[in-house]
Design a protein around this nucleic acid. Structure first.
Lengths: 219, 219
DNA sequence: GACACCAAATAACACTGTAAAGTATATTGA
DNA sequence: TCAATATACTTTACAGTGTTATTTGGTGTC
């Protein structure tokens, strides 16, 4: 509507600005993708700005034109992990209608994410767990379903269905979440070090946990 | 017996060597204590060899005469945390004779250690959890009661007493341990960030957990 | 007193993140 | 088309990190 009132020069200027902005987002994305590759190879401690820069043929300082500092870039990497995590849990939620099955499916999806993205999981929930809230706030409402909300909804539904006893939804969600997180985080830490924490054993542990949970939270 | 066969010179030489060794252990201890202070102030990421050295008036390289590298010193710091942790759990164990009470007391002691030694806990069980086994192996048999064994014993006793159902002791111990660890680690991560994870809430969560556990693991 | 040993310090290397200043290239307005 | 300007990127530099090889200075031994 307002474009009709613009002169040719103004229109050109605007399109040019848009084009530059696109280009800017493109190189920003290139940096981010390189950072993700880097992170998935080196992990949290080995992650280095200079290596990321070298990897895509930029000078280290160039990164600062697109990200505030190392933490900002690392948060962007983390953030990408959160959207993937959210999607995984969203899918697990959508795949079942039975409240109890949903609850279990969420647990399994949680475990699966952790086992298949160990470095991401460790950053997201162990090294920089503060970012959990920051990520959900930043992501905007469009993203919608964040993992915690999904889990809490599943808990609420399970309560309503009489599968688990009534109680503060947040408290109950935190309780259930803690258990799974405990298993997953220890599994990642102990993998390859303590025999009892190999993948098959971990799955059995999750089964045990569900059993304890359903019995223990029975109405 | 063999000292009788030594000449005076040999005896002097030996005592001299002992004295030097004592002095050596003393400065080693001084470095370690400085490192612990440093760590408790700066945490895992902020911990720096050069700062430790400066703190006790040594050159950074001197530390390498007493510790293999940064990791070695950090492990020593960690190790001290493990002995304190073990003692805390040992005390909790000894303070009760009722199997269920023992189990709960161990959980509370676990939580208490985490809340009162957050930086140590994070290194011991989150950043460098691989060291859990290394620590128990290194410590020697004299140290005796390591926390995991204590917990497993409590589990076994609870099984025998019919408080919780029979099962693989290791598996059950891991299950219980995971839950507590999940709560404690999330509590430390979320403290001061997410309101629902303040100390009082965390204690309530542990209570909930015990309730779920005793019901869920009922024979 | 000459010698060997040993704790500690110096000097140096290869890294790290980050800030300030400089340099082309591209875009704009006349 | 040309000078001014804005943008993208590099160069340079600083302060810090862990770590190794070399050198110093004092101590105990013969």
């Amino acid at each position: 509507m307002s474009s009709a009132t613009l002169t040719r020069q103004e229109r050109i200027k605007q399109r040019s600005a848009e084009r530059r902005e696109r280009s800017r987002q493109k190189t920003r994305q290139a940096i981010l993708e390189a950072a993700i590759r880097m992170f998935e190879r080196e992990g949290y401690e080995g992650f280095s700005l200079r290596q990321v820069a070298e990897n895509i043929g930029y000078t280290p300082t160039t990164i600062y034109l697109y990200f505030k500092d190392k933490d900002d870039l690392l948060f962007a990497v983390c953030s990408q992990g959160f959207t993937e995590f959210n999607q995984a849990l969203q899918a697990a939620y959508a795949a079942h209608s039975n409240p109890l099955e949903r609850l279990k499916a969420l647990g399994w999806a949680y475990l699966e994410f952790g086992l298949s993205h160990p470095l991401h999981y460790q950053m997201m929930f162990m090294q920089r767990a503060e970012w959990v809230t920051k990520a959900t706030n930043t992501k905007g409402d469009t993203e919608g379903a964040n993992a915690y909300i999904i889990q809490m909804n599943a808990v609420i539904e399970a309560m309503k269905a009489g599968v688990i006893r009534m109680g503060d939804p947040i408290e109950t969600t935190n309780l259930i979440w803690s258990g799974i997180h405990g298993i997953v985080s220890l599994a990642l830490s102990m993998k390859g070090i303590v025999p009892k924490w190999e993948e098959s054993e971990v799955r059995r542990l999750v089964e045990d946990y569900f059993q304890m949970l359903t019995r223990g939270l029975q109405p």
